[in-house]
Amino acid sequence: MSEDGGKAGNRIGDGDFSRPRRFGGAKTQSRIEAVQFMSLSLIILAVCIAGPMLYSFVASFFSANLRNPGLGEFVGLDNYVNSFKSPYFRASMGVTALFTVLVVVLEFIVGFAIALLLNRKVRGKNIFFSIIIIPMLISPIAVGLTWRLLLHPKLGIVNYALGLLGLPARAWLGSAKYALGTVIFVDIWQQVPYMVLVLMAGLVSLPSEPYEAASIDGASRWQTFFRLTLPMMLPNILVALLLRTINALKTYDLIYVLTKGGPGTSTEMISYHIYKRAFTYLDIGSASAMSYLLMAIVMPLSYVFFKLSKNKMN
């Protein structure tokens, strides 16, 4: 039990588990017990994550190809340099950045709005909530296949509905102009519930006293929102944004089902590009190098988010 009586530890988004005092004051015996309890997880982590990570790190300096046994020739930093030189890798970085920024921002705005609405006393709130989280429960592959049918330019219901409204039909996935926007829309449709869920959990756990005080002081609804709700929600918001950003950066399923990176390279994201490198080209060396380059982008990002999140909480 932590010194604060575990209060902080009960809140979603609490990064407090990093505090040393969790085991602080424990005797050596309990430390040994803790290690014993954790040992199986640690071994699994080491085998499933650290091992492949180490292998791919080493492979990123070799001309490793799945067709040939072993790691191939040592090529130094060539795989890294060539990745940066590749216009397709750079293009996929651009697409990924654009996609990530747009989906995270839009999902946050829509998700927060829905969470705020559902946090009020509304009749049938639980029913709304259950319906809203359904997309999140569907596998991304099923989501992609369903939307692919709905968006069929000639036989899909989306263009049919637009036609009834007198709007022109569009080639949603077949035109470089609309394809990325369509993928972003499908992602938002599926991932907004996640934002709603995380933000709702935060809203529900907010203390009521400050609101009562604000009400007595005559604060307007906007003032209450900007001066109370938003600052108190900030740790939750940051965690939600952080997790969603990381998930958005590795989006693969939707691209695979909806567009395969096309038309042209208009929807080719980094994860899909790396996957092709590894499993079509079988070029494990450069796929590993690209993965580490991606990690170099994500690491500082997640570190910054965590720092921000911790500072706000403390």
Partner: peptide, 30 residues
């Protein structure tokens, strides 16, 4: 100091989850 270390470690694991996503996702299109 320790909390910084843990924050760093957590960041690394976040990034690791990303790598796992990139590496061997195998999607059978239903």
């Amino acid at each position: 100091m320790k909390s910084k270390f843990f924050a760093l470690l957590l960041s690394a694991f976040m990034a690791l989850s990303l790598m796992a996503g990139c590496g061997d996702e195998k999607k059978e299109a239903a």
